[in-house]
Amino acid sequence: MQAKKFIPLLAFVVLAGLLFRGLSIDPSELPAARLGQPFPEFSQPELSTGREVSVEALAVRPALVNVWATWCYSCRVEHPYLIALAQQGVPIYGLNYKDDSAKAREWLTQLGDPYQLNIADVEGSVGLDLGVYGAPETYVLDADGVIAHRHVGVLSEEVFQRDFSPWFSLGASLSEIHGEVGVE
């Protein structure tokens, strides 16, 4: 009979625990459906050269595939860090997603170009095959060309150290270079 008195308290503790856990979960972040699968086939022009590129062009691996666009404000925030990563020798392929190619080329001229090459995905079809639902998004392509990880949102040093270290081991901290680029 005594134990019964504690049922509401117990129920409260369980509910509070669940709700507290919920506070730290981001509901807008979706599980990536393409994880563990090879990068989807495509044939699109390269942004700067205009020549057709296919999935074979993503040859240097492991690499990052960064989804970006000039209409995406967060991409501008992220850009200096991508340059810092490229200077550290991390290969980055760009997916210029649903963008005006002329504006995108201008962006790279003005802000610097951290990309090995850029897939000009004007219609968003590569993005659709990849399951992209916004920009910026950053994927890890592992040594076998398989999509190993997806990050939604701005890529920062903190995120990179936490989630990307299994594929890329950077010796020193990037903050020095990052700071330099930030001054620009």
Binding site: L30, P31, A32, A33, R34, L128, D129, L130, G131, Y133
Partner: peptide, 8 residues
């Protein structure tokens, strides 16, 4: 659709 965006 599910292959690209998951059961979500």
């Amino acid at each position: 659709m599910v292959a690209r965006y998951g059961e979500f």
